[in-house]
Amino acid sequence: MNKIRQSIYTICFAIILGLVCATLLTVAAEFTRPRQEENKKAEEIRNILSALKVPFDMETGPAGLIEIFERNVTEQVAGQGEPLTIYAYKPEGSDEVKAVAVRFAGPGLWAPIKGFLALEPDYKTIRGLSFYEQEETPGLGGEIVTQSFRDQFTGKQIADEQGQWGIDIVAGGTDATGVHEIAGITGATITCDKVEEMINVIIEALASKRDAYEQ
């Protein structure tokens, strides 16, 4: 009898503790959610802007970023079928498109990777690349966010010499001399392969909708 009472006590204790902890965390999450969402949105915008190479101050707060975004970038949905949103950079007051960006996403090694690929107005030359969400291994796959890795993309083509769509992230340490080749990160082969794959998916999507944005 005593044993049963003890077990009931243990179960009740666990339930009450669980409820108290869960309530506390729910309240905290609810309370901080508006600010967290604002930060997330700002992070996304900061990434679009930096991929497009829109000049802005890195210290700008969320509200300022949204303002810069709205003044310089217009969103347009291209083509039929699967909609593809293209972010076009038209510097304030001008009508000339200076760059375009598309969002890419896909599975990484541990968690989803999301980012933006920006192209020059010719829709062929890469202008910039940025990642706004990734949880790759710090020091290995996590190195994809470094400036030195991302800068390699700038100036590369999204098709090879024969006109075949897609980029190629080659093994780290080798010469990435081809117009569509980027040197990968040693020790992060899986991450690099997955990044290549998700970027190529978006390049394919862009290519299939070429007539939609080309006059």
């Binding site: 669980g18 902890c21 965390l25 905290a28 901080t32 930060n39």
Partner: peptide
Amino acid sequence: IVEVAIIATFVILFNEFLKAY
């Protein structure tokens, strides 16, 4: 288990605070 539940609660609270501010 009770200790870990209490610890986890405090850690998550701190993390949410960092993410927001």
